[in-house]
Amino acid sequence: MRNGLFGLAFAGFLSSVAHAAGPQLISADDYGDAWPFTVDEMHLSCFPGDALVVADAETGVMYPLNGTAKAKASALGLEPIDKVWRADPDIAGAKVSLGPVIEQGLPLCK
């Protein structure tokens, strides 16, 4: 029974991956000081249900960008965004806004 449920969950994951929009390569060069990540390049994608995800261009590790992706993080095998989210050099304890990357990614969901 447990293996059957795992198989169904895995099949659902593969189905979601097969229908993902993107990926679109984005980089620190594109954003300058507004780049919100600690790695230089990411692939930006939209998964079914408007789940925006970035993946490290070198390692392939995926991270959620919006609330929808965070809610599906476990099912999609996503790592916490905090692992690659850059600290804001001007505001102690704050992070660089993900807003511009989310705005760029939303059209991928259409």
Rank of each mutant, 00 (worst) to 15 (best):
V17F: 15
Y63A: 02
M62W: 14
K95R: 11
S16A: 10
P48Q: 00
A94N: 10
W85N: 05
S97K: 11
A21E: 09
L65Q: 00
C46Q: 02
E58M: 08
L76D: 04
W85L: 08
G60A: 07
L8M: 14
A57G: 06
F37H: 08
H43P: 04
G67S: 06
A55E: 05
M1T: 15
Q104T: 03
M42D: 04
Y31E: 12
F47D: 01
A94F: 06
K83H: 01
V101P: 11
P100D: 09
D88S: 02
G49R: 01
D90K: 13
G99I: 11
K70R: 15
Q104R: 12
M62Q: 14
S45A: 10
G77M: 00
V61I: 00
L65E: 01
A92C: 00
R2E: 13
H19V: 11
K72V: 09
V61R: 13
D90I: 01
F37A: 00
L25V: 04
S27I: 02
S15W: 15
I81D: 09
I81K: 00
F6N: 13
A55D: 08
D88P: 10
S97I: 09
G4Y: 11
A11H: 02
L44T: 08
D88R: 09
A21V: 04
G99S: 13
D56E: 03
R2T: 13
V61E: 15
T68K: 12
D30V: 05
G12T: 10
P48M: 02
V101Q: 00
M42S: 01
F6Y: 13
G99K: 10
V61S: 06
P64C: 07
P89D: 12
F47E: 10
P23T: 03
P48T: 07
A55S: 14
N66I: 05
A87I: 09
S16F: 13
L108N: 08
H19D: 09
A20V: 08
Y31R: 03
A71S: 12
P23A: 02
C109V: 01
G49K: 07
C109F: 11
P89Y: 11
V54Q: 06
V53C: 08
E103W: 00
A28K: 15
